[in-house]
């Protein structure tokens, strides 16, 4: 691990393209849940800007509002107060059909529990978003096979989720999330249920996607290996952003993350 320590500090940050634009912006984001009179405030005002081509990790203990934050920026839920702008468009103004289009074409989702459709084969799982997006079946099948090859599951395209291991299912989920070439990937604990080796493979895929294809990746995670590949880190605690920092501004040592503390 000590070699790792040197590597972490030695890797230079990604070149900063001067004309980066904001792909997701939140302004004063607040969310509370009202359950039979008991009000739980999940987010208490979050302002953040996420740039295209970025790899940002969101960290925080459970109950900190991480998942809620993800729901907001993924257009899966609407805030109680404040606004979310996706590509400069206020998400609250969108109709149901526009939201569906958004989720289909612009944003890809990867969940900790894979969320594959159990009665469809791997290929069918991957091609479903393409079908929703209006791709013809033959074309969809071709692209689906390519994506499965990309994640290394080319021979298992006809297997159903129940016949695959966790890692393989997660890889299928990744392939699925890339189906319509989204601009943003939202990953909720992608390596949470996986063993070390498989998790490493997943991280490599994500890194490749981010560097080569320029996909914006937003990851919620506990996995410290994510630190290797991300550009920025964000800590959320008690519904507020505790800290956002670029990786090269941090001193990372085993067991602790130093640098400026909040």
């Amino acid at each position: 691990m000590s070699e790792k320590k040197h590597e972490m500090n030695a890797t230079p940050p990604k070149p900063d393209h001067g004309r980066r634009r904001v792909i997701i912006r939140t302004v004063g984001l607040k969310k509370h849940y009202d359950m039979k009179g008991v009000v739980t405030e999940a987010l208490r005002g979050v302002d953040v800007e996420i740039y295209t081509g970025e790899f940002i990790s969101v960290m925080g203990p459970s109950g900190s509002g991480k998942t809620t934050f993800f729901n907001m920026i993924g257009a899966l839920d609407s805030p109680s107060a404040g606004r979310v702008f996706i590509d400069e468009v206020d998400a609250a103004q969108l109709t149901a059909e526009e939201l569906a289009y958004l989720r289909c074409n612009k944003i890809g989702y990867i969940f900790q529990s894979y969320n594959l459709i159990q009665y469809m084969t791997a290929l069918e799982n991957v091609t479903t978003p393409m079908i929703f997006g209006g791709v013809l079946p033959d074309e969809a099948r071709k692209r689906g096979m390519e994506l499965l090859d990309l994640v290394g599951l080319g021979e298992r395209w006809h297997h159903r989720p129940i016949e695959m291991s966790g890692g393989q299912q997660q890889r299928v989920a990744i392939a699925r999330s890339l189906a319509n070439q989204p601009s943003v990937l939202l990953c909720d604990e992608p390596t949470g249920n996986l063993d070390l080796a498989t998790g490493q493979g997943i991280l490599e895929v994500l890194q490749r996607l981010n560097e080569i294809k320029g996909v914006t990746v937003i990851c919620a995670t506990h996995d410290h290996r994510m630190l290797d590949i991300c550009d920025r880190l964000m800590w959320i605690r008690d519904g507020r952003i505790q800290r956002i920092a670029r990786r090269d501004e941090l001193h990372i040592e085993v067991g602790a993350i130093g640098g400026e503390t909040a």
Binding site: L76, A96, E97, A100, Y101, R103, C104, N105, Y109, N115, L116, I117, T128, P129, F132, G133, R176, A179, N180
Partner: peptide, 8 residues
């Protein structure tokens, strides 16, 4: 999940 993938 289907809705996440874009189902109307």
């Amino acid at each position: 999940t289907m809705k996440c993938l874009g189902a109307l």
